[in-house]
Amino acid sequence: MTALVEPAALRSRRRPVARAVEGQELALVAVIAALWVALSFGTNTFLTAGNLSNIVFAVAPVALIGIGMTAIIVTGGIDVSVGSAAAVVMVVVAKLIRDSGVPMVEAIAVALVLGVLLGTVNGLLVALGGIHPIIVTFGTLNLFRFVALRLFENKQVTGVPSTLQWFGGGETGLSIGVPNAWWLAMAVAAVMWVYMRHWPTGRHWYAVGGDPAAARLAGIRVHRRLVAAYALTGLLVGLAACVLIGSGGLVQQNAGTGLELQVIAAVVIGGTSILGGRGTVLGTLLGALLVGTVTSAITLLGWRSELTELFIGVFILVAVGVDLLRERRRRSA
């Protein structure tokens, strides 16, 4: 029974070094490092503070939501509604700070609470409904988008003040030369990495994803763990919405459209198994960074924009392929 609940812990006793990192983090670090070295020699503009901070700022929202999405995918679920949820939070918060002059701390509080609420709706539907999460969240993707469009009232939100510029992409959003949004993503990832590796309730996510029936028999409160994963993702959607509003300006009706696919791409490229039971937030952070590096590099090199899609597609297929091979080897071992 214990073996079912904490398989990784048992394995880590057998091969401590190899288990220090679980998925393809090492391979990803190597790929990113190789890319960065190549780009540093290939261009004289890649390895500049301005460029690197642009890359990590652009991927910060994806990385933040990706941390929550990793937990969800580890439980064997998925949340495709995050883009629409982000749109709801963005329009509410943008209107509050523009029309009511709500200060920064209150704006963040509203964003986080609203995010958790939307996430909890997903979590409850998934846990209590017993329907596949992709169907549930596909439904809420449309519902949340509907809510957001009604809140927009047929107008984009223009002239949003710079209340949340601490999160933004300008000078005011930097600490020690690094965007605050990326510091946040790294901090949240660090906490979640420890939590998911060493806390019992964190490990339970893996057990739920590995075999929900066995997890239930082992005394894990499966429903509660599922709701927690979706609510956490909602919280991070709220945080990402603050980053997306950032230094203000414009919030468009299409805010967050397609964000879910970028997030899922980062998680999958980061080595998290789409079947559940395996994956780390560190991998997700690296996955997001790899996608951001490639996107930026293509502009720096003056290559055609659509090559970004080609590379991301190849990365996803390679990542899934490697994961399948590893799984096969594990089973035969």
Binding site: T45, T48, G50, N51, N54, G169, T295, S296, T299, L300
Partner: peptide
């Protein structure tokens, strides 16, 4: 972000 890339 693309405009920033172009300026870089």
């Amino acid at each position: 972000s693309m405009a920033k890339d172009l300026m870089n």
